[in-house]
Amino acid sequence: MHLIAAFLASIGRGFIAFATATGRLALFTGPAVSHCFAPPFYGRVVLRQMVEIGYYSLPVVGLTALFTGMVLALQSYTGFARFNAEGAIANVVVLSMTRELGPVLAGLMVAGRIGAAMAAELGTMRVTEQIDALTTLSTNPYKYLIAPRLIAGVLVMPPLVLIDDVIGVMGGWIIAVYKLGFSSGVYLHNTVNFVQFNDVFSGLVKAAVFGFLITLMGCYHGFHSRGGARGVGQATTHAVVSASILILLSDYVLTELFFAK
């Protein structure tokens, strides 16, 4: 009987902790988003964040896309060759990249790079009282620290993913043409003919949503960081893990919305 009570209590504690965390996140997200639409706007800070999130993530996101496109072409060839359907490689690569792998892999890479950096920066600002200092200097921390990061994340992720899509397709093209002996013209023709506006558009919408989630998680965990270096380390881990999970979860939801019949 005692064991059952302890088991039920542990479930209850877990549920309360989940409800508390959800409530705190909602209380953080509301003002964070509302400050994105109300002046003053810190244009310089937004631009700096756009460069940080977009431009400096290009190498890592580009490399990921390049090798993903190459692997996709190789693996598709291995499978499709059994059914004499090698011609579908271009279609598989472009569809996989634009709809799923482009936005999801870029999102996960940016979550690791930017989400962690944001949580560490804001966490350090919190424990060294820099966020309190902002308030005493008549500057709203939500407006100066959080809103510019959210705006930059939403604006910069779609173009980053678009470049990522192009590099991924190029990776597939390199393998198809230089390793598997496909005609360059036919491969590109198949790619352009098969891909539809909705394939690319859905990927860009996903990118914007992922950009929001990555920056929101980085800011939320950093902003609520407590307890010195250990707290900052925990905030960084939580930011990356929670952003990654939310990316995969929202990817499924958005795919259902866009493509479910």
Binding site: T128, E129, A133, T136
Partner: peptide
């Protein structure tokens, strides 16, 4: 609150300068 805070200046224990 903004108007109230404009009356204040504060020196923090660890200086709290923006890195």
């Amino acid at each position: 609150r903004d108007a109230m805070l404009r009356k204040f200046g504060m020196l923090f224990q660890g200086s709290a300068l923006f890195d």
